[in-house]
Simulated assay, not measured.
Amino acid sequence: MRISAAQRTENENRIRAAMDRLLRGEIPPGEKCDIKTLAREAGVDRTAFYGTRPYAHLRLEFERRLQTLHYAGEIPDPREAQITRLKAENTKLRERLAQSEQMIGELTDFRTQALARLAAQHEEIVHLRGAADTAAANHVIHLPAARKTTIGTCS
């Protein structure tokens, strides 16, 4: 069925208005910022946006504007924004987890080395004490007892 030039202009105006609303983030609940929602909001058949159909140029314009917003860091679709945010958060958490696992490995190695050093030092102390006790038993010299002196007494 052919439409008149006035109807086509009216449809294009509705499509552009719906396009502006969607790109501002005014997305109906449960919908996305996509051609399907654009067609539904404008009251136009979705197939009219593809191939050589009458509104294919508007689909290209919509996709270009949407891509421009994405490059600028603005995401009109709250679900897409949430997905992007969650993916970034997931990446950060994975990095933190990898850093934590690396730190745990390093600290475990340090603990193992510290315990080994402490055990070696303990063994050395026990050995030196034993050697000192043996040497002391063989070479003990008793010093004379200290004399008591009185200082500053006059008789």
Rank of each mutant, 00 (worst) to 15 (best):
D34Q: 13
D34I: 09
I35S: 10
L38G: 06
R40M: 14
E41A: 15
G43F: 14
V44I: 11
R46A: 07
A48Y: 02
F49W: 03
R53N: 15
A56M: 09
R59Q: 15
R59E: 11
L60S: 13
L60I: 04
E61W: 13
E61I: 07
E61F: 04
E63I: 14
R64V: 15
Q67C: 11
Q67Y: 15
Q67V: 09
P76A: 11
P78T: 10
Q82V: 07
T84H: 01
L86R: 07
K87L: 09
A88H: 10
A88T: 10
L93S: 04
R96T: 08
A98M: 08
S100M: 14
E101R: 06
I104V: 11
T108R: 14
T108F: 08
T108N: 09
D109K: 12
D109S: 08
D109N: 05
F110I: 06
F110L: 08
T112K: 04
Q113C: 02
Q113D: 10
Q113N: 12
A114C: 08
L115Y: 12
R117E: 03
L118Y: 04
L118C: 12
A119H: 09
E123L: 11
I125C: 08
V126E: 11
V126I: 09
H127F: 05
L128W: 15
L128Q: 04
R129W: 01
A132D: 09
D133W: 06
T134K: 04
N138L: 05
H139I: 00
I141D: 03
P144M: 10
P144R: 01
A146F: 15
A146L: 08
A146I: 12
